[in-house]
């Protein structure tokens, strides 16, 4: 059984419909990448799964249960954690406090402060700094660490590489398989196709709110991706 499954998921913002009948599946232990152009609905999909947006049609199933009616704080307690676009660190909290607040839901597991510092050693050195005083890459590490502190079964990552230097992106992407191997499945949203293809077990391409392509990275041709990404 899939860990996450959306069935004909339809959602949007007020009168604006952003997703149309989206079906995706994430199996236990997988890294799934969602690619697509700006405005294709990638972030909307993550927000709907994290229960920040109402489900207007279809269902979101997590571990077999319908979670369409839950709110975000309940989804976290079930084991769904979102690393939001733009990091969104809490400005009046220090790095360590930002990590600690990630564990607010009280879910037990292998991710504690020590393990996060082990994954991102730079954060240990900056634990007393305010989150907003850090570089973009370090902030992204805090945001990932903060999400891991709730010991999620499913980690949703929105535009991890956005605005970061290539070398920092490498650091962050090296961490993703380690997170998966520790027992957390991932959905990553990326505009950088090459980056996504390298780590993903499965790829979905969104275009104007609809899934236009799906498959294993090795099976997909450049042309097929190009067509799915930009439209015919």
């Amino acid at each position: 059984m899939a860990l996450l499954q959306t069935v004909k998921l339809t959602t949007g913002y007020g009168d604006f419909q952003a997703l149309f009948d989206v079906d995706i599946e994430v199996a236990q232990g997988q890294i799934v990448a969602v690619i697509g152009a700006n405005g294709a609905g990638k972030s909307t999909l993550l927000k709907a799964v994290a229960r920040l947006l109402p489900v207007d049609g279809g269902t979101v199933r997590f571990d077999g249960a319908d979670i369409s009616g839950l709110v975000a704080s309940q989804a976290v307690r079930l084991g769904i954690s979102l690393v939001p676009e733009g990091r969104r660190l809490f400005p009046s909290l220090s790095v360590e406090e930002n990590l600690q607040i990630g564990g607010y839901s009280g879910r037990r597991g292998s991710w504690r402060l020590a393990e996060v510092y082990d994954l991102f050693p730079r954060l240990a050195e900056r634990r007393r700094h305010m989150g907003t005083a850090l570089s973009g890459g370090e902030q992204q590490m805090v945001a990932i660490g903060r999400a891991l502190m709730s010991n999620p079964r499913l980690l949703l990552c929105d535009e991890l590489s956005l605005g970061l230097a290539p070398i920092v992106i490498q650091d962050i992407y090296t961490a993703l398989p380690r997170i998966r191997d520790a027992g957390t499945s991932l959905v990553i949203v990326e505009q950088d196709i090459a980056q996504a293809m390298r780590v993903a077990d499965r790829v979905y391409c969104l275009q104007e709110g609809r899934i236009t392509l799906t498959g294993r990275p090795a099976e997909l041709s450049r042309e097929a991706i190009h067509a799915a990404y930009f439209g015919a």
């Binding site: 704080s73 976290v76 969104r88 909290l93 990630g102 903060r146």
Partner: peptide
């Protein structure tokens, strides 16, 4: 305290606070 941290986080950004499992 932990609840004080949650107070400050929610005051900063209620939406992201929900992503921490905080019922604001």
């Amino acid at each position: 305290t932990a609840i004080g941290r949650a107070f400050r986080a929610t005051s900063d950004d209620p939406e992201t606070a929900q992503l921490m499992g905080i019922d604001h």
